[in-house]
Design a protein around this nucleic acid. Sequence first.
DNA 1: TCCTTGTTCAACCTTGCGGTTGAAAGAACG
DNA 2: CGTTCTTTCAACCGCAAGGTTGAACAAGGA
Lengths: 117, 117
Amino acid sequence: MDDQLNRVFSALADPIRRDMVARLAVADAGVNELAEPYDVSLQAVSKHLKVLEEAGLVSRTRQAQRRPVHLEAEVFDLMTKWIERYRRQAEERYRRLDDVLAEMDADQTRPDERGAS
Amino acid sequence: MDDQLNRVFSALADPIRRDMVARLAVADAGVNELAEPYDVSLQAVSKHLKVLEEAGLVSRTRQAQRRPVHLEAEVFDLMTKWIERYRRQAEERYRRLDDVLAEMDADQTRPDERGAS
DNA sequence: TCCTTGTTCAACCTTGCGGTTGAAAGAACG
DNA sequence: CGTTCTTTCAACCGCAAGGTTGAACAAGGA
């Protein structure tokens, strides 16, 4: 599960792979189609796809000689959950800090009441 | 803006850096504090922090000899926006596909094979 | 001033990643 | 069968990333 996060984040760390995902969100495509806009070899694109596939971001089905690539959007949830979790935590922390500051401002005789560790 | 995405995604591709972010969501910390749980040198941790800082994920202020590290949660938005955009696009595409299939189903001009999932 | 604590710089090593080229494998079709 | 189209495997190259160690820098406190 942590490995999955490693793979997904590093898969999307590459601009070519992000662009591929962006285009696959519009329509499935074969390797040749996908490779067309980029100035790299077909083999390089094939490698990129392998990375995306191992991250669970795309799947591939055989269809004649072609192997159409299909975006699997569920994995995105893994990332958003991770991100949102810590973002919320951080925001919550700020909120509490504001409370503490406000309390210190209003009532300076009370030391500690909420024993946050 | 694309560079920013590169930096943020690859910063979070490392499990140690993700863990640092997770811990910084709870409380600010100095380098020594942060380094404690990991089995690497202080210098390695310092490098990790530099990466997080260049990605805009953390900021640092001087406070006596210490340089406390502080999580900057806003950058998360950049990622979630990117992710949500394409996830929504993909989901929209499925919805339309369902419509097409429903139409094909109602309009049975081709009683062909569609034996798969 | 010297010493201590906390952090970073510099040099180096090894591994992994993105790129290349060349050859091969899978599947349709003459 | 052999040809053609599409995709992948294998070997290699250059470079950046993550790790190490040793020295340096920054800022109190004795």
